[in-house]
């Protein structure tokens, strides 16, 4: 079943494809984490990669953003093969790809304002201070946390930190957002709020998102398409209802 579905969902128009992964391999010594992994993400689409802990989900998005080097295969973002890019060209691509880290990765020594200004100043050095202030305010308004602008990350709750991390991801107005387990470590209510925020962002900015998760609420609500990553391979593909009704015990275990 998996192969049929994969082909069906991979058939996307070239014009709208923002991310394309073909035959990706990644190993750490003898531990083969990704084996012949394929994925195609289109503009405005939310794909959730579902898998057990340690199945290589985070490795996958770190390969996409260039934090890890892959062994074989290709990753094309906006039709550009990232393997051959130099540091400057890779930074240009990264400016269009937001990354929400599992641990939020807010800079502890900076205020919320400085955290948000940091990627702006690094990627778009020539922006005026007025423009930067405006963009920071807009990003904080999007996540509903304007009042925290001069607070330190340590003064914020887990949910607020996650929202600020999303605001920092949004501030560059990316075309693709990579979410690494966005609801992990949050209570169900806050987790729900974060999922709603992700859906709002997609609707408002028409971003494409690749979401790494094993939270079934997130999978159900935020996905247009689900890819089950098992033993390093793209084991099954489909939407929530299709996969939920799948008889394969390996697929079924995720939906029980």
């Amino acid at each position: 079943m998996s192969e049929v579905n994969k082909n069906e969902y991979n058939h996307v128009s070239e014009e709208t494809t923002v991310l394309e992964i073909n035959h990706l391999y990644k190993s750490f010594g003898n531990n083969h984490v990704l084996i012949d992994f394929n994925l195609t993400l289109s503009k405005g689409q939310n794909i959730v990669v579902l898998g057990k802990s340690g199945s290589g989900k985070s490795v996958l998005i770190k390969c996409i953003i260039g934090l890890l080097k892959f062994d074989k295969g290709s990753i094309r973002i906006f039709s550009k093969e990232i393997r051959n890019l130099n540091a400057t060209a890779l930074d240009k691509i990264r400016a269009k790809v937001g990354f929400l880290f599992q641990s939020n990765a807010l800079y502890d020594s900076m205020t919320v304002r400085e955290n948000l200004e940091f990627p702006l100043r690094r990627h778009w050095i020539k922006l005026s201070q007025e423009k930067i202030n405006e963009m920071v305010s807009q990003a904080l308004t999007d996540v509903g946390l304007v009042h925290t602008i001069d607070m330190m990350p340590v003064e914020l709750s887990g949910g607020m930190r996650k929202r600020i991390a999303i605001a920092r991801t949004l501030i560059l107005k990316p075309d693709i957002i990579l979410y690494d387990e966005p609801t992990t470590g949050l209570d169900p209510i806050t987790g729900r709020e974060i999922i709603n925020l992700m859906i709002e962002i997609k609707t408002k900015y028409n971003t494409a998102s690749l979401i790494i998760s094993h939270d079934m609420n997130c999978v159900k609500s935020a996905s247009d398409l689900i890819i089950i990553l098992l033993e390093g391979k793209c084991y099954a593909t489909g939407n929530y209802q299709e996969l939920k009704s799948n008889a394969d015990p390996k697929v079924k275990q995720f939906f029980e």
């Binding site: 953003i65 934090l67 990354f99 880290f101 990765a105 800079y107 502890d108 990627h123």
Partner: peptide
């Protein structure tokens, strides 16, 4: 806490 990775991603 992945702040170094975040820095790299931020150009």
């Amino acid at each position: 806490t992945e702040q170094i990775d975040a820095m790299e991603v931020s150009g």
